[in-house]
Design a binder for these strands. Structure first.
Lengths: 338, 338
DNA sequence: CAAGAAAGCCAAATCGATTTGGTCACTTTA
DNA sequence: TAAAGTGACCAAATCGATTTGGCTTTCTTG
């Protein structure tokens, strides 16, 4: 158990006193800087080891102006991003980022999307990865305000944006439904104007024109979660019974759509094909399991962290991200019962 | 995008100069301490706002000796804890901890289990939550060394341990198989000597004595993951064909066990019942889905954080944790095809 | 051999906040 | 009227490191 008699850790001054040298010399000796006699250097190292000295990360941070910490931030409503069991898109990205960050010598701070409270001021970070910022994103503003550099995952294209390949993803979904024989695929979208939504609409409408079906778009509010998707889909199916496919990018909506389909007497995977975007817990455990897209989040988070670290460490930008294309994961919701 | 011209943030000295008072007075005014004329206080606040002043978390940390940060740590091999898609037990706990920690005014640092590197020295934390430490756990040693208080999830019972209810969990699994008619339930366990394993063995053997079946235990190495579970189960089923139930606490082993069962010509859920412990992605997406236990990780992580914060803030210990008992989630692997 | 270089070491400044221990000018109270 | 408060403020110490700018010696080298 944690010892409650906290033995105040040895400081550089303790080492200096014990070794009979100045703090400067201790610092130089331990960091391999300056001119230090090798005998002195050894002596200092020995004393440091015997006192079990470790430099204080806090003090180093204050002095150097860097904390060697990064964070993943998002102002998305957590109902959408996290899901009921805390597993999901945000979490998966966070773990991916954390792993790479650690390899690069940074620690990773977890700031769960919390709705109102803006955590930026309480975070001691050198840089951040910002997930899908809305226009006028408050977190983006706070970061700029504090002079904290950040990389965006899924924002307007640019030097500091890592793309989520929304167009490709949407294209995969639409083409797949069409290939599977859907004559009247509809889109169930979110009301808020993020890039993923815009891309889905564009690609969907382009496909409608190309293939020759009438575009039908239902909308629901992201923060309503599964129920929102359910209601939008139910309305859609009631009003347009000819609809035989649903593209539902937001997975919380998608499970709602399944419910609506079943209640409307449809057989999901047979006379109603449903596909969603994020291949997470919801898609995999839905009944039937949902066709979804493997977005390659490991690569995405890795690319984001690498770009951020490149900016922070001032080195050369990493190679143009060889981000592999997203791939479809076909499941029963578009391929009928196994 | 992050602005690369970093405008060095306003410091308390800037505010003091601008307001024509000393740094002391600024500090007192902003923190509501000391005796400050209310006109002066207002003036200081106004200047602080106009300069967009925010105290440096780094400097506060150095001064106060606290970083207001916590971390979840584990020395378990990540093959077991994290799983291929980074989702899992560790992640679920981390997100739970992070949420509560944030509510309590702490930020949460993510330190993915990384095998060799001991992250403790690079972490600026006030306290930690340690997951399932082995005997002579290196991370536990490092924490004690640095004088960092920690709470254990799943360790020897005590003031600073939050229990995972292994006995109850194991009991649930064994009784369930017996109830479902298993005559010869076997146990597939890990080789390493952690509490969960010990509890599973004890409860299993007690049940064998009580109910009257011959205990059969197969072992596999945790770090072999699914394959280890597969091989152990295959051997077991080949040697003891009468086995009609498998208790496989480690979920990675469990999916291996399913594979072994199928290859041995069994029908999982019918003539071979399989149940596992952690109700995560593996259990839910296995074919067939696995009966598992809802461990109540949200409550566990909440209790751990609350206890830790109580220790750190020196307040009274929180009420004896009213940790609710784990509950069984029955799925096809023990109840036959739907 | 004197000027200059290099080795070896250290005192003090610095990072940005909080806290301690004052000073000074006015009240109160005894 | 002297002693004791108290309101308002500030200089300097402090936290624990790194870095700047010396200051001595001891070589080199023209």
């Amino acid at each position: 158990m944690g010892d409650s008699s906290r033995p105040s850790r040895a400081t550089i001054a303790d080492v200096a006193r014990e070794a009979g040298v100045s703090r400067t010399t201790v610092s130089h000796a331990l960091n391999g800087l300056g001119k230090v006699n090798s005998a002195t250097r050894d002596k200092v190292k020995e004393v440091a080891a015997s006192l079990n000295y470790r430099p204080s990360v806090r003090a180093q941070g204050l002095r150097s102006g860097r904390s060697q910490a990064l964070a993943l931030l998002s102002s998305m409503p957590s109902a959408v991003s996290a899901g009921p069991s805390q597993l999901g898109f945000f979490t998966e990205l966070a773990m991916g980022c954390a792993r790479i960050a650690l390899l690069k010598g940074y620690v990773f701070v977890l700031a769960p999307p919390d709705g109102d409270a803006n955590p930026v001021d309480r975070l001691d970070i050198d840089g951040a990865i910002l997930l899908e910022p809305a226009a006028d994103d408050p977190i983006a503003a706070a970061l700029s305000d504090r002079g904290i550099p950040f990389v965006v995952i899924d924002g307007p294209a640019g030097e500091r944006t890592v793309d989520l390949h929304h167009e490709d993803t949407a294209e995969l979904l639409v083409s797949h439904l069409v290939e599977r024989g859907a004559q009247h695929p509809a889109l169930v979208a979110g009301t808020d104007r993020r890039r993923s939504q815009a891309a889905a609409r564009e690609v969907y409408e382009a496909a409608a024109a190309r293939v020759g079906f009438t575009p039908l778009i239902a909308e629901a509010d992201e923060s309503d979660g599964e129920d929102g998707g359910y209601r939008a889909s139910a309305r859609l199916l009631a009003e347009y019974p000819e609809v035989d496919g649903l593209i539902v990018p937001i997975d919380a909506f998608a499970t709602g759509a399944v419910r609506a389909g079943v209640e409307a007497g449809r057989t999901v995977g047979d006379d109603l094909l449903i596909a969603t975007r994020y291949d997470g817990l919801r898609a995999r455990t839905s009944t039937p399991p949902l066709t979804a897209v493997d977005l390659g989040l490991d690569e995405i988070s890795g690319a984001a962290v690498e770009r951020l670290v490149a900016i922070l460490d001032g080195g050369s930008e990493p190679d143009a991200s060889s981000a592999s294309a997203p791939t479809l994961v076909v499941r029963e919701s578009t391929s009928g019962p196994a």
